[in-house]
Design a binder for these strands. Structure first.
Lengths: 230, 230
DNA sequence: AGCGTATGTGAACAATGTCTACTTGATTGG
DNA sequence: CCAATCAAGTAGACATTGTTCACATACGCT
């Protein structure tokens, strides 16, 4: 099911074989070389296709061409693998937002710039959710089992979604679009809006709503947040 | 694990026994009498405790005191049982909102009444989410597999959350608090806000935020929606 | 070179969803 | 009133999953 190309195969000691319609890695060396990352990559692909519940430990090991137990040398169990995959998904979300945010550059009008920034964060978030529902759901719809026992959570690289949103809200406040009284915890308020729409559209009662309409609602949400917090 | 009292035991032909720390129903009649509802009730309790992933078909049958296959006389499979449980959870959500909404009665000030109505819907929703996280997550965090193939979805009884929200927004518009231009699809916008906060707090990055703070943010969200849509 | 240990192998276990064949007994038509 | 029918539950089996324990191997360090 998983694509043959991609970030698999840490080194070059692998060959591919088919086994029960599943591409597996057949290696010549006893050691895999980079099993941990291979498992995460396989899990990421499974999450992309089927969401968090589709992240199967045994299938990941099958992909990497090792026996199921080998995974336990790198993860305490399936939950920990899933958590690593979740972390990877979160990075993708952040990257998508960052991409969208790079598009708006500061100009004369600092208020317009602030507005564009907030818009970029919100729509980048929502756009990723529509484009990659499985990854998005995995990034957030994970039961709080282990969930952030490791501080590598934010240390992945770059800024996480929350920090990017904070940046946009700072610009709002600096340009006078956001009252000082409303600034505190405004991240949570703004985040809630697009997050709710995304999940209602992905795995909620709005799951048959066309993407364009969801995005149009997202635009209105951003405006609502602007007006509501001004 | 499940409580001994409650909506189990459709008729009086049962006795209870312990088996592997699980209370099971031991019946004397060959027929169970109301197996379908017994399975849903058991599933509901499992959902209450552990969310959607904890709804195990075999455990439900164990509870009802029948063999696993008996469930297949009433449900096509685990997914269909889960969907029935999800529907039951949704009814609970609606009931919680309705309770909250009954508290606010119309007075002289129609605008205050409208505001109170919106507040009741939002906080009733959020309050239920905090009080019954498992049921709330089950009501909404279900992958869109079968998901509303049966129109009994809304025909359960009373109004569903969406309809209650519509009612509150109608009051907002009638009292002049909500512009006609903004009325269209305002349900989705308002819903998204509290839904997002609830899920961020339940199974998202905000899962360690204290309940009082979540509720306080909810209050601010309601105000934000009011202002943003006025 | 040789050894210790990280890493993968083998085999096994319990639990889950699901299937096919069978039994049972409540309902109902004659 | 009685037997046939057929829905509802039983019995047993199978594939898949997560997980554990004992064992093997070869990587890399001294």
């Amino acid at each position: 099911m998983l694509s043959t190309s991609g970030p698999f195969r840490g080194t070059l000691f692998f060959e591919q074989t088919m086994k029960k319609n599943v591409i597996i890695e057949k290696r010549k060396t006893f050691r895999h070389g980079d099993l941990r990352n291979a498992l995460i990559a396989a899990g990421l692909e499974m999450a992309r296709v089927g969401g968090p519940n589709a992240v199967i430990l045994r299938e990941a090991t099958r992909h990497a061409g090792v026996f199921p137990n080998a995974a336990y040398r790198h993860f305490a169990g399936q939950a920990e693998l899933l958590d690593a995959v979740r972390s990877a998904c979160l990075s993708r979300v952040a990257a998508a937002i960052e991409d969208e945010m790079k598009k708006c550059r500061p100009g004369r009008d600092s208020q317009a710039f602030a507005r564009k920034s907030l818009h970029a964060v919100g729509m980048g978030y929502l756009g990723f959710a529509m484009r990659e529902p499985g990854m998005f759901r995995t990034a957030f719809s994970v039961p709080p089992a282990i969930h952030e026992q490791n501080p590598a959570h934010t240390a992945s690289m770059g800024l996480n979604p929350f920090q990017l949103l904070s940046l946009a809200l700072d610009r709002m406040q600096e340009s006078g679009l956001l009252g000082k009284k409303n600034r505190k915890d405004a991240e949570y308020l703004a985040w809630s809006t697009v997050h709710g729409l995304a999940l209602l559209a992905l795995e909620g009662p709005l799951h048959k709503m066309p993407h364009e309409m969801v995005l149009a609602l997202g635009e209105r949400l951003v405006v609502m947040v602007e007006r509501g917090l001004s």
